[in-house]
Design a binder for these strands. Structure first.
Lengths: 205, 205
DNA sequence: GTTTAAATTAAACGTTTGTTTAACTTTGCT
DNA sequence: AGCAAAGTTAAACAAACGTTTAATTTAAAC
């Protein structure tokens, strides 16, 4: 899938608008204006508004695979958790707008079919987490009986909660601006998730 | 705030539709049909579609306060965590539809003002969590230095993630139907969150 | 039984929606 | 230069949107 300049303008404009107003809350005329493009160009290039969302998802998906190569370089399982969480949060944090779109739209049952591309992604990431847990059990540092699905849900959910409730949390945490919030996510929140997973995996009953 | 039968029909219909299709994705005609009511009745009773959402929020908010009375009966801090999580998840689980609406709509920046009612609610629940942590530290079983905001985010986020990704998770966990999913949330997921919080609060470094 | 207010209805209101059309311009190729 | 394809545009399309109107029915009060 390759896109010309104008198509990318449209995709980026759609990303900005979907992330703040939602898919249904954004009109094709909104997108056209935001992208400095004629309305008809959207249907000309993408076929329809729905297909634009499809294309948008497929365009962005590849950015979210956990890089397994980096993990294999790390020796012990505790450090693997740290690296995995760090990379995962950094990846999500650098595509915060996209993640808002996913969170909002993947929820709506009608559009579930669209997120097929994300299903494969999630399964891949689940497998990575499972392998880290197993290597930790083999090392004797992690307790058995912890479901990767639950740990993945916890990690994703905690991050997502920060994305969805930025206004409230920014105020609660006394953070002044958007940049500060991003920094908080990449430092304090990351450390919190790392600590939580390690605590959980080493917790004896 | 008191409502007659027909108003409640409309509110319940709106809840069902907003939860599956989102606010923008639901038309007033959809709501009217779902509630077996003339379209004009919605504006007659609630003024506008936006005010219907306002009213809907205020109508449902009181159900989500953590009951402090029950907690004060429980002796040690570890058990307090169990009770708190159990009550919280049960409360959210029994209003799953509502929580989808909140999650979807509170995200959209334009409608942030609406969720003012929820702000107070969240602050109340945060205070409850903070007091549990402090009592645990006083008992000498919890480590100091854990932010209630992060723990609350983790609990909320994990639950929310289960709400938002039901289709994917139900398949991953091999759960057949909606009821089974609800049961999983009230048992396995609840235990997971309890364990995670206790592990985190007792984790030494 | 009459009166007054509340409830309910079908129809119409003016916008906005996503999409298509048809005319026009630009680009690339021989 | 000439031609075909791709790109671009303003205008128009029917459908759906939230809301209002005006007429009618129901209910309550005296």
């Amino acid at each position: 899938m390759e896109f010309n300049e104008k198509q990318i303008d449209i995709l980026l404009a759609a990303e900005r608008l979907f992330a703040t107003k939602g898919f249904d809350g954004t009109s094709v005329r909104d997108i056209a204006q935001e992208a400095n493009v004629n309305v008809a160009m959207i249907n000309y290039y993408f076929g329809s508004k729905d297909k634009l969302l499809d294309t948008f998802f497929e365009w962005r998906v590849p950015d979210f695979m956990i890089n397994v190569d980096e993990l294999s370089l790390v020796g012990n399982a505790l450090d693997k958790v740290d690296v995995m969480v760090d990379r995962y949060v950094k990846s999500m944090s650098s595509h915060r707008k996209l993640y808002r779109v996913i969170a909002i739209e993947s929820t709506l049952k009608q559009r579930m079919l669209i997120s097929e591309a994300f299903k494969k992604l999630k399964i891949h990431n689940l497998e990575v987490i499972a392998s880290i847990i197993n290597s930790g059990i083999a090392e004797g540092v992690f307790m058995p009986g912890n479901d990767p699905v639950l740990i993945h849900s916890m990690m994703m959910g905690t991050f997502m909660n920060f994305q969805m409730n930025q206004v409230f949390l920014q105020e609660q945490l006394g953070i002044a601006n958007d940049d500060g919030y991003g920094q908080y996510i990449e430092t304090t929140l990351t450390e919190f998730i790392q600590k939580t997973i390690k605590a959980l995996l080493t917790y004896e009953k």
